[in-house]
Amino acid sequence: MSHTPAHTRRTGRIVLRATVSVAAVGLPLTIPAAAHADPGGAVYLAANSLPVVIANLQAWLMGILAAIATLFLVLAGVYWATAGGDPSQVEKAKLALRNALIGYGLAVLAPILLQVVQGIVGG
């Protein structure tokens, strides 16, 4: 089997990726402070109350759902604009639009769902 330039480049990339991965993990562990994670003083844990945790979770959940829904909305527009009358592309666009609407609906309902969870947990 002869080694083609493409095969040699691919092998080189694999070796480079492995080397970078090992260096990224190994080098920080060679530094004693990083390896032992010694803070050098008293450690204070800052724990939030349940309502604060639920409010933070609500904000993150709404943001993530809205971002994903916006992505699907943009994809629906691209699919629809590039369909050119192709029924399968139009169907793909409609499906992406439906997914976007579901995502926006979940983002709107997230506060209600988290209030139910808070009520169950007892916060």
Rank of each mutant, 00 (worst) to 15 (best):
Met1His: 12
His3Cys: 08
His3Lys: 14
Thr4Gln: 11
Pro5Asp: 15
Ala6Arg: 14
Arg10Cys: 02
Arg10Met: 14
Leu16Asp: 07
Thr19Pro: 06
Val20Asn: 12
Val20Tyr: 10
Val20Leu: 15
Ser21Lys: 08
Ser21Gly: 06
Val22Ala: 15
Ala23Tyr: 13
Val25Ile: 14
Leu29Met: 14
Ile31Thr: 09
Ala33Thr: 13
His36Asn: 03
Asp38Trp: 13
Ala42Val: 08
Tyr44Glu: 03
Tyr44His: 06
Leu45Tyr: 00
Ala47Val: 07
Asn48Gly: 02
Leu50Ala: 06
Leu50Lys: 04
Pro51Ile: 01
Pro51Asn: 09
Val52Thr: 04
Val53Asn: 02
Val53Pro: 00
Val53Glu: 01
Val53Arg: 01
Ile54Gly: 06
Ile54Asn: 00
Ala55Leu: 05
Asn56Leu: 00
Ala59Lys: 15
Ala59Glu: 09
Trp60Tyr: 11
Trp60Ile: 03
Met62Lys: 07
Met62Ile: 15
Leu65Asn: 04
Leu65Lys: 09
Ala66Asn: 05
Ala67Asn: 15
Ala67Arg: 15
Ala69Pro: 12
Thr70Pro: 03
Val74Glu: 13
Val74Thr: 05
Val74Trp: 05
Val74Gln: 07
Val74Leu: 10
Leu75Asp: 04
Leu75Met: 03
Ala76Val: 10
Gly77Ser: 11
Val78Gln: 14
Val78Gly: 10
Val78Glu: 07
Tyr79Lys: 08
Tyr79Asn: 07
Tyr79Gly: 00
Ala81Glu: 05
Thr82Trp: 10
Ala83Gln: 14
Ala83Asp: 08
Gly84Met: 05
Gly85Tyr: 11
Gly85Lys: 15
Asp86Pro: 09
Asp86Thr: 11
Ser88Met: 08
Gln89Phe: 07
Lys92Met: 04
Lys94Asn: 05
Lys94Pro: 03
Asn99His: 04
Asn99Asp: 09
Ala100Lys: 02
Leu101Ile: 08
Leu101Arg: 14
Leu101Trp: 02
Gly103Glu: 10
Leu106Asp: 04
Ala107Lys: 12
Ala107Arg: 15
Leu109Asn: 08
Ala110Tyr: 09
Pro111Val: 05
Ile112Ser: 03
Leu113Phe: 12
Leu114Gln: 12
Gln115Asp: 10
Val116His: 05
Gln118Lys: 11
Gly119Ser: 05
Gly119Ala: 06
Ile120His: 06
Ile120Pro: 01
Val121Thr: 03
Val121Ala: 10
Val121Met: 08
Val121His: 07
Gly122Met: 02
